[in-house]
Design a protein around this nucleic acid. Structure first.
Lengths: 341, 341
DNA sequence: CTGAAAGCGCTTACAG
DNA sequence: CTGAAAGCGCTTACAG
C-alpha cells in the first residue's frame, strides 16, 4: 500500500493541506514545519500519486498551442498522428490543444498565427519555427512571458526553448553516407538534392554526409548539390538537367522533392543504375523502395516527434518534469524494401 | 468543458450510480433505464474520464505477473527497461508487477515459476513462453481461469493469449537478406548461424532470409546453417571450424552467439573480408559495428516490446481495451555504424 | 432495481 | 501560518 499525504499528515501532526504546501513548495507555510514534513515524506518514501494529482488539477484547464508548417507536406502526416495520440492521452488531464497548420514557410504568416494563438493564452507552444529573426524574437518574448516553447522537427538558433524534439540531422547524413559506402565498392560520383540552404537540418545532413565520405569513403566524391526548395517541380527540372548533362553514379535526397526527382530519374533511363538514398518514408518514397528505384531511406520517427513534443510540454506543465536534455533526438531508422511497414 | 456522468444523470433524471451501472454494463439495472441512459450519453458525446476512473479503481489492487527467461541474456536488458518504464507509469493506477527472471530455457523451471506466480493471483501474465506442451497447457489453464496471457518476444503455437508482442521474424530475415544483397554484387556463399531449430522466431528469420535470396538475389547461395543454442562457446568453435574448412563469403547471425562467432572470425584472419549481418544491438554487437567487423544489424525495438507487453495487459485489465491485433509487431530497425545510439 | 453517501489521493479557496 | 471542508469524476458498498 503506497504512502499518501494523509499518512504523512498524521505522522507529522499537521493537516493534509499543510503537507501539500510543504511538498509542493507553496507559499504561506512555516519553513520549519515545511522542512519537517519533507523529511517525514522522504523517510516514508512518499511518491505522489500522479493520477490523483491529475484529477485534482483537472479543474485548472491547460491549453497548449501547436503550430506546424505542415499543410500539403506529406511528411507531417505522421507527425500530426503523434500529436493526435498525445492529445487523446492528455485530454483526461484537462489539457487541450489549440492547433493550427500553415502552408509553406512564410515568416509573416507564422508571426500572425503565433499572435493569434498567443491571444488564447496557452501555457505552452509547440512549433516548427521558421529561421527568421522576427519569429525568434517573438517566440522569445512569449518565453519571457512564461509560455514554454518546444521546437518540433526543426530548430533555430537563439531560441529560448524547453527543448527541441526532432532527429539528429548530422547522424542522419552520416548514416546515408555509410549506406552508400557499404552498397558500393568502386570509385563513385554523388550529387546531393537538398531542400534549402536556409534550413539548419538540411545543412547538417549534408555536413554529416560529407564528413563520412571524407573519413571512410574517399573513393566517393561529392560533385554537386542541387537546391529544390522542397518543390517537386523544381526537383524534376534540376535533377533532369543534371542527369542529361553530367550524370553522377548516386543521388542523396536529404529533404523533400523526391517524387519530382525520381520522375526525372525514370525519364533519364538511368533508373536502377543510380544508387539512390533518401530521407523519410512518405508514400512516394515507400513506393519507390518497392519498385527498387530507391535503395534505402533514412527515417526519423515522425510519429514519435509529434507525440513527444506535446508530451514533453504536458509533463512540464502538469508535473514540472523537465526534459532530460534540451535535445530530444529521435532515432535515424534505415528502411529498405523489406522493412517498410 | 467535458461531459460528466453527473450531467448525464441530471439529463436522465437518475442518480450517478445508475448512470455508472448503465454505462459499464453492470448488473442490477432496469434494461430500459440502461438503454435510455446510454442513448443520452451518446447524444451528449460522453467520453469517460480515464483519470477519474483510474483513481476510483485504485482501491482494487491489480497484479500482473512478468516471467522472462532473461537472466544472463544481454538482449533482455532493454526489454526489462521497457517493463520498468511501464511499471512506473501504471503504479499510480494501483497496478503492481510480480516479476521473476529465469536462466536458460528449462520447461520444468518455467512451469514451477508459473505456478509460484499464479499462487499470488495476478490478473494477467506476461511471459516469454517456452515451446513445450506442458508449458502451453499450463498457460491455457490459467487463461481458462481468467488470467490473461501476453507472449513476449517469442510466441508458441496453440497458446490462448491476449496477444503476442515481438518482432516480425520473417521480415527480420528478409531485411537481413536484402542488406546482404544490396551490399554485394557478385556471386556469394553465405552461412547462417542460428540459435535453435526449436525456436519459432529463429526459424522464421531463416525462412525470410532464404525467400528473399531466392526471389531477389539468386547469385547468393545459402551453403550451411550452424546451430549454437545461443551459446558463445559453441558459436566460437563451430564458426571457427567452418572458416577453417570451407569459409563462406558472408555470415548471417540470426540469434545469439555473436560474440563467440566474431572471435572466431577475428582469429581466422577473414575479418573485414566477410560480410556479416546480425540481429539486435547488444553492447557486443555495437562494438563490432564500430570496429567495422559487422556490416549491419537488424534490431527489434526491445524497449518497446517490454513496455508494450505490460501496457497491453494493463489497458485490457483496467480499461477493457483489447489490442487491435493478436500480433503486436515491433519494427525491424536496421542499424549501421553511424546510427547506433 | 435505485439512490445517497463515502471513498480514491491530491488541491484549493475560505476561515481563522 | 494552519486547518476543515469541498471538490476533481468515477465507483462501490449499503440501504431501501
Amino acid at each position: 500500500m503506497a504512502v499518501t499525504i494523509k499518512q504523512i499528515a498524521e505522522a507529522a501532526g499537521v493537516s493534509r493541506g499543510t503537507v501539500d504546501r510543504a511538498l509542493n513548495n507553496r507559499s504561506g507555510i512555516n519553513p520549519e514545519v515545511a522542512k519537517r514534513v519533507r523529511e517525514i515524506a522522504a523517510e516514508l518514501h512518499y511518491e505522489p500519486n500522479a493520477v490523483a494529482k491529475a484529477l485534482a488539477h483537472s479543474q485548472r484547464k491547460v491549453q497548449i498551442g501547436v503550430l506546424t508548417n505542415s499543410k500539403g507536406n506529406p511528411f507531417f502526416d505522421k507527425v500530426l498522428r503523434g500529436i493526435a495520440r498525445a492529445e487523446r492521452e492528455i485530454r483526461s488531464f484537462g489539457v487541450s490543444l489549440i492547433q493550427s497548420e500553415l502552408t509553406g514557410y512564410n515568416p509573416e504568416e507564422q508571426l500572425a498565427e503565433i499572435d493569434r494563438i498567443a491571444a488564447q493564452k496557452p501555457e505552452g507552444l509547440v512549433i516548427t519555427p521558421i529561421n527568421d529573426p522576427r519569429v525568434i524574437d517573438r517566440l522569445n518574448e512569449l518565453a519571457a512571458a512564461g509560455i514554454r516553447v518546444v521546437a518540433l522537427n526543426t530548430d533555430v538558433p537563439g531560441l529560448d526553448k524547453l527543448c527541441f524534439v526532432g532527429c539528429d540531422y548530422l547522424q542522419s547524413g552520416r548514416t546515408a553516407a555509410e549506406l552508400l559506402g557499404q552498397m558500393t565498392q568502386s570509385e563513385l560520383r554523388v550529387s546531393i538534392v537538398t531542400g534549402s540552404f536556409r534550413m539548419l537540418g538540411h545543412n547538417q545532413r549534408i555536413e554529416g554526409f560529407r564528413t563520412v565520405l571524407e573519413q571512410d569513403y574517399p573513393r566517393i566524391r561529392l560533385v554537386s548539390i542541387i537546391e529544390t526548395e522542397d518543390d517537386n517541380r523544381s526537383a524534376y527540372h534540376q535533377v533532369g538537367e543534371l542527369l542529361r548533362e553530367d550524370p553522377p553514379d548516386a543521388l542523396y535526397f536529404c529533404a523533400g522533392g523526391v517524387a519530382g526527382g525520381l520522375r526525372a530519374v525514370e525519364e533519364s533511363g538511368l533508373a536502377g543504375k543510380l544508387k539512390i538514398i533518401t530521407v523519410d518514408d512518405t508514400d512516394d518514397v515507400k513506393n519507390f523502395l518497392r519498385w527498387k528505384l530507391i535503395n534505402a531511406t533514412v527515417c526519423q520517427q515522425p510519429v514519435k516527434q509529434g507525440y513527444e513534443s506535446v508530451m514533453t510540454l504536458f509533463r512540464f506543465l502538469t508535473q514540472k518534469t523537465l526534459p532530460k536534455s534540451k535535445q530530444r533526438l529521435t532515432q535515424n531508422e534505415v528502411k529498405l524494401r523489406y522493412n517498410i511497414e
